[in-house]
Design a protein around this nucleic acid. Structure first.
Lengths: 361, 361
DNA sequence: GGTGCTGCTGTAACCGGTTTCAGTGACCGG
DNA sequence: CCGGTCACTGAAACCGGTTACAGCAGCACC
């Protein structure tokens, strides 16, 4: 069918006009007489001509694409992230390149490579080294998502530390719990680093002795099950575990209930993220909601604006919300609805979005 | 810093050679004397020159990218899918464009648009219309993943119908169950269509009356909870539910245990996919394993080969494996390990990978 | 000395678009 | 009748690479 690809010159020949005119028609720029336009459009239509993306991109010196770099962990968190980002990018006809760095040693080189092919880059916090981010930022617009980059690189994030502290205070002060453990690896990602910091801060604020070292496991459900084993092996069982995210919390929940413990009576469990499943388990999970999808969409918007030169390079600090359900020991709604709708009571933790960060030099 | 971008001509000037020589050195093609090579490399190194991707791509008439089109549902299934695909693509320095079509009316047009920017396209079954797939296949290499496309378009898939039939037979014949329900919408995706067909086939094979109409819900956990409600409202409660995938099965599990039912004593539940969580819940979920990640990787490999012109366009039918755990009523391992390791017994269902499908004309 | 390799290098044409700039003819006012 | 706009069009240069082809030494061989 399409033996030799249709070019703008071919269409020009067929329509009996110059390439400039074809370009003008297909882009709707410049002045073209109605009659000529029709003739060109007919030729385009008839032969199914579509301008070649590469030629156009080269001339415009724009790729029409942005990159998204993330570690590549499984689960709802990343699905939401990717979708939120993509849905925003597609609105501006920008395509999205993805790069999972997980477990690859040479990922920094790959990110640099990707930077040659896109107009902007969104990088998840902790996936590439700060040095590399700096190098990238010198090449093209970069936004860090969920984490913070070097000075001058805008970041979109939530106040993890404050949220984790509020959650921990709820357990310590409102429920009077004393022996809490943190499940998650603070070295694993900036998010966890901050949540661990908030966890400790809450202890400090209430003038309690500092907590034990964290149970260092990953962020997926099997990691939570593994953590549950460790908790159950303790000589003195903790009263509650504050998990770095919902998925590991669900793993802990499954692990300990599988061994006959009751939650929250025997052990209190909390999560972070408020993934859909959090509201559906028994007991429903007390957690912190962060609007992952919206966060990712914000990142995409910011990145596209910066890439288009139409925005200041400022960061964003997003609101979180403490979602109190049954797993912390708070009374559940009279009759747990099997639809899994969110349970009251729920208290709002942190308020407004606020512009933060600085403008790049 | 880089006020005007470095071009090959600029480097040629700086090294005192021609652009052809610079190109030869940076690509390692052709003959270049050792001394000249060193001089060029020094200029490249010194100024941090990197060939512009667009120029190179235009000259090579290759984008160096492939596209992945999927509906955009959340959950582990899609994360695995994306990662499996991406990890394979990155090996050949090919970048991956993603497109989530979910809930967008004009997605077919977007897919066509994406086709202009990539060397090949992997499309999840059921995400775009067969007509559009045909149109795409006329433009560039296309592989359908988990579903089948029009004749001539290679597909990578598993034998869902046979696997679902085997699973259903296990419940009907081995456990002697009679009142089974299917949870999932056969119109929602080709996978579900086939699983529903297998479910019915098993009834037919055993000369049992055909099953009730399916409980048409989506594939996510909340959908499963919704389905559980419907099951609980039945005048005569079914003895078991065969769910279209693990996530909805987990939703059903949560939904019914939250209402005090015991699984499998009061209700048998099975899933499909064998996501990690399936082994970790109580009781562990009887399901069918399909190697999603490997499936996606296969798809990427096939697509890249076809795009490089180095492979026949043949499809692949992947093996599945029936994973029998506790939720169907089979005895669990003596002591359920809290690590969530897979439980015996386990029976292999279907054997070898086999080349299927046809070569494109 | 002429001929034919061989190894290296450079010129210029391409890839497929966009865009600048210089026409061209029609029309208008003086 | 003439000069000046104005709407429209096309030739050619450009974006940043790759590569076909030709040219030029240097050398071996007849």
């Amino acid at each position: 069918m399409s033996s030799s690809r249709l070019t703008v010159r071919e269409i020009a020949r067929l329509a009996g006009v110059s390439v400039a005119t074809v370009s003008r028609v297909s882009n709707g720029t410049g002045q073209v007489s109605e009659e000529t336009r029709r003739r060109v459009l007919r030729a385009i239509e008839e032969h199914g001509y579509r301008p070649h993306h590469l030629g156009r991109a080269l001339a415009a010196r724009r790729h029409g694409a942005v990159g998204l770099v993330f570690p590549g962990l499984s689960g709802p968190y990343f699905s939401e992230l990717i979708q939120g980002f993509e849905s925003e990018a597609v609105k501006t006809r920008t395509s999205v390149h993805i790069l999972c760095t997980h477990l690859r040693a040479d990922s920094d080189a790959e990110v640099i490579e990707m930077a040659q092919r896109v107009d902007g880059l969104a990088v998840l916090g902790g996936t590439v080294s700060p040095d590399t981010i700096e190098e990238l930022a010198a090449m093209l617009p970069v936004v860090v998502l969920a984490g913070d980059g070097p000075a001058g690189v805008p970041a979109v994030r939530v106040d993890n530390a404050a949220a984790a502290a509020a959650l921990t205070r709820h357990l310590l002060a409102d429920h009077g719990l004393r022996r809490l453990e943190f499940v998650g690896d603070p070295n694993g990602s900036p998010d966890v680093t901050e949540r661990w910091a908030g966890f400790r801060q809450a202890h400090h604020d209430l003038e309690l002795p500092p907590p034990r070292a964290p149970i260092r496991v990953g962020l997926q459900q099997p990691d939570g099950v593994h953590a549950a084993e460790q908790v159950l092996r303790r000589a003195i069982r903790p009263q509650g575990v504050v998990c770095a995210n919902d998925e590991s919390a669900l793993g802990v929940l499954v692990g300990v209930t599988g061994r006959g413990l009751r939650v929250p009576e025997d052990l209190v469990i909390t999560g972070f993220d408020d993934i859909p499943m959090a509201a559906l388990v028994t007991p429903p999970l007390t957690t912190v909601r962060q609007p992952v999808r919206e966060l990712a969409a914000q990142t995409a918007r910011l990145l596209l604006q910066v890439a288009a030169g139409s925005a200041e390079q400022t960061g964003l600090l997003h609101a979180t919300e403490l979602v109190v359900r049954g797993s912390c020991g708070c009374p559940r709604s009279p009759e747990p609805t099997p639809t899994g709708r969110r349970h009251t009571p729920r208290s709002r933790h942190s308020g407004t979005n606020q512009a933060a960060s600085t403008t790049t030099p």
